[in-house]
């Protein structure tokens, strides 16, 4: 899991990119609190072979689940 809460863009996407490059996980959970980060991570996921689903977890925070495309 990546906890990118408190980081502003592009840091959350950079953190996701590093994890994907390092371990190419089948699934990856990312916590953010910036709506812009949700959009950027979703776009990064789609451009890099992942599906991304996001949900608001309350209190201005979001959880994204990235799943490797089959």
């Amino acid at each position: 899991m990546i906890d990118a809460r408190g980081y502003s863009c592009p840091m959350p996407v950079v953190m996701v990119q590093k994890e994907v490059k390092k371990s190419a996980p089948d699934t990856l959970e990312v916590l953010v609190d910036d709506p812009c980060a949700v959009e950027n991570i979703t776009r990064f996921a789609h451009n890099n072979g992942y599906n991304a689903v996001s949900r608001e977890t309350g209190d201005e925070e979001f959880a994204l689940i990235l799943t490797k495309k089959a």
Binding site: C9, P10, Q17, E39, R43, N47
Partner: peptide, 19 residues
């Protein structure tokens, strides 16, 4: 739109993202 002059080139260099 999150329009950003620096972000435009940064995302191309960093992620190959042209958005």
């Amino acid at each position: 739109s999150r329009l950003c002059m620096a972000g435009g080139l940064r995302d191309v260099f960093l992620f190959r993202d042209f958005h």
